[in-house]
Structures are given as structure tokens and as C-alpha cells.
Design a protein around this nucleic acid. Structure first.
Lengths: 195, 195, 195, 195
DNA sequence: TCATAAGCGAGACGGTACGTCGTGTCTTACG
DNA sequence: CGTAAGACACGACGTACCGTCTCGCTTATGA
């Protein structure tokens, strides 16, 4: 069952550090970002950073999760297609901003149990809840049958868009989202038999 | 138009270095891999490595591209579903091995024009040709109509599987592939109207 | 006019690094000494070394200058001959210890304006003042006339001894010093006509 | 007893390599000179160089010894003072050209028994013979007594001049030579009592 | 006239040091 | 007492040079 979001609260200083981190993340990507630069730009000491987050990866994951929390509201356009398109656009926007940053973080997250927990807690569940909310709304409207919703591959929409934003020269566009929704997702969700 | 694959040839020494690199890549991931260790394990000098590949990123991209070239034969099981499942399994296998390594490389590839060219030359076109071959075969067999093949999102299958292999705790399995093929791809490819 | 000695002060960490450097200099000579080994032996990081001295040459020049500063007291034995012999012995001792190290440093010093300045500041002026003090004392005692003191070749004593300590198989001994003083320097300093 | 000079003979190719080496030695000094550059400039292969001389130090010592052999004729101006001045000028010229190169070679020579032998064979004895010849001539002319000739410090003239040419900012001039001869050497050689 | 060998130019190679930079820990001094 | 400033240990990166080596080409001889 989905763990409740339970959003972490931050002090003003922490918010500031996260904001600077996110800014640098967008400018430089994960690997080029340095903690020294974060500290310098925030007129902070490295010790202050490390007191709050035990590693660069923790800092960046926190900044990223915190920074993308604004997508948290599920769209409600009145139709499944509209909701999916809207969701796709939002994800595309985020992914284009942070695409390669995400890629850089992933290996670190893989290696650390704690980071994995933070990542799931702060990011994963939120996104999953969003998707399921959109699909439930469609079921309620009678657009799709509940049994077409698969738990195995619920994240095709965000997953593929994120993939595209990480691969060089293939950053997703509105056309990408439209094609994905119309040619893949809707045929899948409105197919005759759910497994 | 697709550039011809034109596979790069390597000397024996180079093959050896790439093999060692790939081995270390699997063990340690991109960021933990060190050129010193590659050189040491291959009883080579760092100069030998850097003479051939100008940076760690170049080395690893070369090793990766070269290492996954074995998937180059398109499957031909006689049915679209069989081909897609087989392809998905192959990709899954590769992706599970190198998932986080790919993630680590991507930011570097993004930043370097040269690396981007190498990546496309050695990896991207090959995979794309594979997918299209499978789809063309299905068209020839009359299983699908040619107009359902989209150039915008031809890489949903590999893209989503690679995404899954990079995200912590979501490494794809056979069930993932089956669900993806049966619940998403086939409904998409056999839908009524193209585009 | 001679620049005031103005001895550079060092922190404890720096003193430690210089001591280790001097030790290694004696063991290995300039060219065989490695910064890595200095750092390792001082349980220091290379960055710590390079933060203070911008190159191996700077480090070694600093260590050498600092290390030989102990000869700084001019001898006062009561006679010119005694003073010269004592001074020669001191120089011989130093030169035998660091002979080839000095040789190794010189080309680097030649090439760097900064190193040249450091060398003169820390080493050259000090030695020159020493010699002149000894000669002035002899003048005061009435042993020699002031006009025999040449500014062109004031450093024959240290220069020749250092030369001897650098040339293979000719390291200077007490006999060398005695011969130099009795057969060369004293006849020169007590000759009839100055200039 | 002095070993006979026994000058080494070289083939045309070897002469060429030595000439290029000497040229580079003057341009770059010992440490900056690279065997690669010697080979490149002589359109030779490194193997060709190393076939003849087993190390960079051997090559450079050979080039240096060979290059300065032209000073080999003892001057005969008719007076000791003239001979010493002439000799000093010749040495000064050589030393100014190769001063820092000599310094760079010395540590290597110190470390290698073979190089020491070569150095003595090719350079040391020759210079020593030169000095003694000049002094013997003065004895023959009745200018000095034979017992003022010391074997301990026969090389004050070349030694001090070489020293001066190695120390930064103190390259010897004609004035240096004149002062050395008139104020030091002649008073020493014409003093009343030999040791 | 052609074949086989010896020498050479070219340059890859293993090893090792240099000097730079980033992480994460720590100490010091200030407010 | 927290924090800014920044020194510090560790270790990787990419560069350069030394001395060894292998590969072809060329030239110099022997059948």
C-alpha cells in the first residue's frame, strides 16, 4: 500500500541551500555540481551542508525531490486523454530541466539503502499516486475498465519520458507526449481484455 | 536518414582494454570505475588507455557500445509477439547488467559533442534498426499495418526497460516484458487507426 | 645594498613538511624525490603540499633554505684563519649533505623568476652577509686591509666547496678546506696590492 | 695516475645525434631535454638512440663531453697570467653555455658508476691535464715554484667559474675571470711558501 | 635478378611522477 | 553555541617522459 507522502519540512537555511543546489544542478548536472560551489553560492560553510545532509548525493536528492514537489496536484481536465496529456507535459517539463541530473544521481541512489528510501519516500510514491489518481478518475468516468490498470507497468508514461530526456538528442516534446498518449497509452488502456 | 552502422574495428589490445573496462563497469558502475584500475587489471599503462580514448567517458562509452553489440541480430521467432518478447528479454538482460552504468555515462554524453556522435554511431542506430526490422517483419507477415509504426516513439520498448533498470528497486523482469508487450505494445500496434 | 634577511615563518604543519622534504632530499636527491613520497611520509595530502608551494621545486628550495639556516651564525674564533677554516668546515658539512640536491635544484631555479627570488632571499643574502662579517672582523683586528675584499668573487670559499661536493668523487674534506684557506684564500687576502 | 685521454670515436650518425643533443641541451637544459625530442629532431628512432647510449644521462654526458672537447688545447700566451686569463675565458664561455645543463647531469653521474667513469674518462682528466700543463709551463718559465702546485685544489679556477655559471644571476664575466686570476690565483701561486 | 638479413624510422607500450580537483572531516575564530 | 572560512587526508584524473618493444621498410649482400 502506498506510504503516506509525509513531506519533510525544512528550515529557511535549508530551503536556501536546497534552492542553490537545485540551481546548480540545472546549470551543471549532478557530476559537475560541487558541494564547495553550493556552499560558496549560499555563503555557507561546507560543514553546514554536511551537518544536514551526509553526502553530496543526499543533498542533491533532497534538493531534487523538494524542487519537483510542485507537480503534486493531479490534473483533472475531465477526460482521460486530457489528463494524460497534461501529466505528460508536466513530466516533460520537469524531465527536460533535470534529465541528466536524474541520471547522474541514480547510481548513487542504487548504492545507498538510505538514499533509496529517501528517493521512494519523497519522489516515487508521490508520482505513483498521481498516476493512479488519474486512472481512477477515468474509471469513475467510465472511460476505462479497472482491470486494465497494471501494477507492473504503471509508470510507462513518466518512465519513457524521463528516458527520452536523458538520452542525448532525444528530449521529449509535445509531439512526443501526444504520440505516446494517442498511439500507445490510450490503445493500451482501452483494449478489449485486461490481463 | 539513418547513418550506416559502420562498426569500429579494434586491435587486440584495445579489445582487451574494453573487456576489462566492461567488467569493471559491471562491478563498480560508471562513477566508481577508475581508469587506474582498468589499466592495472589489463596490465596496461594509463597512457595506453588515454592514447586511444581521450577520457574516461570515451573509454566507457566505447566499452559499453562494443560490449552490447552482440544483441545486434534481430530475433525472428515467426510472430510479432514472440519477436517483441525475445527482444525485450535481450534488452532486459543487457540493461540489468549495465543499467546504472548507462545512467552514469549519460550526463557525460550530453556534454560532449564527440561522445554524442560516438554513442549514436555505435549504439543508437543499431538499436533503432533492430526495432524497425522486427516491425517490418510483422508488416510483411500481415500482422500489423505499416502506418502504426511511429518514428516519434519507436523506442518505447527499450526506453522503458532501460528506465526500469536504472530506477532503484524496479529492475525489469520477464513479467515486466510480458506486461509491456501484451498490455501496451501489442494493443498499440494492432489498434484500429494509425497515428 | 643587501636586502634584509627577513626570514619566512612557517606553521607547524609546514615545518613538518619541510623536514620530511629535507630528509628525503638527503636520501634521494632532488630528481629522485617525489612529492607523493613527501606527502605520504608526512601523512599529508598532496593538496596540502601544493597549497603551500606551487611546485616540487618550490617545496625543495624552501626545505633546503630552511634546513641550512642553522649555519647562520658567523664564526668568531679570534683569527681570520680560524674563522675561514670554521666556515669552510660548516659549508663542507652542509654541501656534502645536500651537494647533489643543490645541483638538481639549480636548473629549476634558473628557469623561474619566483624561485630565483626565493633562493636569493632565503639563502644567498644570508651566506653573503656571513662571509662579509668574517672579513670585516679580520679588518677590525688589523689582519687584512679592507681593499682586498672583492665584491666580484666574495664567494670563492663557499662556491668552490659546493662545486667540489657536486662533482663525482671529489667531495671536499678537511684537507680541502685547509688547502683552500692556506694556499689560496689567505695568500689572496694578505697580498700586497688590493683590487 | 692520469688515465690517457683515449678519445671515443663516433660514426656520422652518432655525431649527428650528439650534435642534436647538445643543441637541445643548450636550449632546454638537462631536465627539460627529452629523448623523444632528440630523436625527432634527428629524424631518428628512439631505439637508435638507446642502442648506442643506454640512458638519457649517458647520451647527454656523451654529447657534453664530446661538445666541449674543443677546449682541449692548452693556451700558450707566454705568461702564466695570460694563460690563466685565456683558460678562464674559455671555461667561462663553455660554462655559460652549459652551466645549468651540467648541474642537471651531476646527480645522475653521482648515482651511476658507469657514468662516473665516462665523465672522468671524457672530461675530468682532460681538464686536469690542461691545468697542469699551464702550470708546468709557468714553472718552466720560472714564474712559479713547482711546490705551490697543489693536487688537492688544482681545479679552483674551473670549479669556481662553473659554480658561478650554475648559480642564478651570477654568470661569470671577463671581470670575474680577471678578479679571480689577479686577486686569488696569482697571489696563491706566487706566495712565499708552498704548504 | 631475386631473396634473405640487418639496420633503421615510427611509434605503441608499461611504468611512474606531476599537478589539479572534488569529497567529506576537521579546526579556528567570530558574532 | 552555531556558523563561515577554509585547512586537511584521500584518491582520481589526465599529462608527460623514460626505456623497451614490435612492426615494416629499406638497403646491402649472397645464390
Amino acid at each position: 500500500m502506498p506510504v503516506p507522502p509525509q513531506v519533510t519540512e525544512f528550515t529557511a537555511r535549508e530551503e536556501e541551500l536546497l534552492a542553490v543546489t537545485l540551481e546548480l544542478l540545472r546549470e551543471s548536472g549532478y557530476d559537475r555540481l560541487t558541494v564547495d560551489e553550493v556552499a560558496a553560492r549560499a555563503h555557507a560553510s561546507k560543514a553546514t551542508v554536511y551537518r544536514r545532509w551526509p553526502s553530496k548525493a543526499d543533498l542533491v536528492v533532497a534538493a531534487f525531490s523538494h524542487g519537483v514537489r510542485q507537480v503534486a496536484r493531479p490534473p483533472d481536465t475531465g477526460s482521460l486523454r486530457g489528463d494524460l496529456l497534461r501529466l505528460g507535459e508536466l513530466i516533460t517539463e520537469q524531465a527536460r530541466l533535470h534529465g541528466s541530473a536524474i541520471a547522474g544521481m541514480l547510481p548513487e541512489i542504487q548504492r545507498s539503502e538510505r538514499l533509496r528510501a529517501v528517493f521512494e519516500q519523497e519522489f516515487f510514491h508521490e508520482r505513483r499516486a498521481l498516476i493512479h489518481q488519474v486512472l481512477r478518475n477515468a474509471v469513475d468516468r467510465g472511460e476505462i475498465r479497472p482491470d486494465v490498470i497494471s501494477d507492473e507497468i504503471w509508470d510507462v508514461l513518466p518512465g519513457y519520458l524521463v528516458f527520452r530526456s536523458m538520452v542525448p538528442g532525444r528530449a521529449p516534446t509535445s509531439d512526443t507526449v501526444r504520440a505516446l498518449v494517442d498511439e500507445v497509452l490510450l490503445p493500451s488502456l482501452t483494449r478489449d481484455s485486461g490481463t
